[in-house]
């Protein structure tokens, strides 16, 4: 029984939240890695792209709610999501036309693209703050729990409860659907194949008649969808605050690099690796060990390796270790 309790405690405090967080990071990292693969630069504006998409979705959600339309028991934001994606797609395609297109034509160095993306980041950040402000916005509605801790205890008779919030379940399901759709697109469709060809070898792809501007455009559309979905899922699971989204840039970059920049499968792997390590290292294992350990023997300390405030330090340390020992990432990525 104690052993089961230990597993449930571990599931409740580590595995479930980390899986949801990992799915959000993976979607974010997929966006970064796709841009890196096709456009060949690290997009510093990605966090703010996520924030923009989420903002539009939130406003559409409010609109739907004020019309009395909800998606009970699902969050209304899921209905509003396509609108957020469409607006974000318009924004990033417009940004590409106005900013990045010029540097592609002049064949600027990758670092110039990065600096331009910093400018874009400022502008997007300004737009988001201008429209919705800097405060926390909570826009999750619908059923709160798939299974609450009390129900779980009653059903199983265990001492430990396992709570699965509906937003966590939705995150994982939506992320799986998105990833399946993305990989189907990349592997089965003609356009997807041309994207992969362009990413693998630009010159050969051009030779075989692939239109680079079209590939770039489709990449931005996909990135807009991924970024908005990731942002909305993160916002549903936690809450929406523009500055938090900017800070997400670090774990997202870490996930993309750890997995191997430019490699979509690696981005997913990296996202989960970062999420599990962040939460496992900052979780106090006292309860779990207390169940497994011998009778009456409970550890004195919290058995917490690092305080939760240092979760960014964890993703960063993993990033450094990978960079030092395997600079192209776990799954082989590119290197300019």
């Amino acid at each position: 029984m104690d052993f089961l309790n230990a597993i449930v405690a571990l599931l409740n405090f580590v595995i479930v939240p980390a899986t949801a967080y990992g799915a959000q990071l993976a979607l974010g990292a997929l966006g970064v890695t796709l841009i890196y693969g096709i456009l060949r630069f690290s997009n510093f504006a990605h966090g703010d792209t996520m924030a923009f998409g989420t903002m539009i979705t939130i406003m559409a959600t409010w609109g739907l709610q004020s019309l009395g339309f909800t998606a009970e028991p699902l969050p209304t934001a899921l209905i509003a999501l396509p609108l957020g994606i469409a607006a974000t797609a318009a924004l990033v395609v417009g940004t590409d036309k106005m900013v990045y297109h010029f540097y592609r034509q002049t064949k600027a160095k990758p670092v110039i693209f990065v600096i331009a993306s910093i400018g874009v980041m400022f502008v997007m950040n300004g737009i988001v703050r201008f429209i919705i402000g800097v405060d926390d916005q909570n826009f999750a509605d619908g059923a709160r729990f798939l299974i609450s801790a009390r129900d779980f205890k009653e059903i199983t008779g265990l001492d430990e409860g396992l709570a699965i919030r509906s937003t966590q379940a939705i995150t994982v399901i939506v992320a799986i659907l998105t990833v399946v759709a993305l990989f189907w697109f990349l592997n089965k469709t003609r356009t997807g194949k041309s994207m992969r060809a362009f990413s693998d070898n630009e010159d050969l792809a051009l030779l075989s008649g692939i239109n680079p501007e079209r590939v770039v455009m489709i990449t931005w559309l996909i990135v807009a969808a991924l970024a908005t979905t990731a942002g909305v899922l993160y916002g549903l699971d936690k809450s929406f605050k523009p500055f938090t989204y900017f800070q997400l840039l670090l774990p997202i970059f870490a996930a993309a690099i750890v997995g191997g920049l430019g490699n979509p499968l690696g981005a997913i792997l990296g996202g989960f690796l970062i999420a599990y390590s962040e939460i496992a290292v900052t979780y106090a294992f006292r309860k779990v060990v207390g169940y497994i350990g011998p009778e009456g023997w409970s550890p004195e300390g919290m058995l917490q390796l690092l305080s939760t405030d240092y979760k960014f330090a964890v993703s960063f340390t993993i990033l450094l270790i990978v960079l030092l020992f395997k600079p192209t990432g776990i799954m082989k990525g590119k290197s300019v």
């Binding site: 993703s315 960079l323 300019v336």
Partner: peptide, 20 residues
């Protein structure tokens, strides 16, 4: 640790260190 790697990596490494 980070110099000698590609240019973007130094950017991300410094961004991270500053946060930490």
């Amino acid at each position: 640790t980070a110099l000698g790697l590609r240019s973007d990596y130094l950017a991300i490494a410094t961004l991270g260190v500053a946060e930490i």
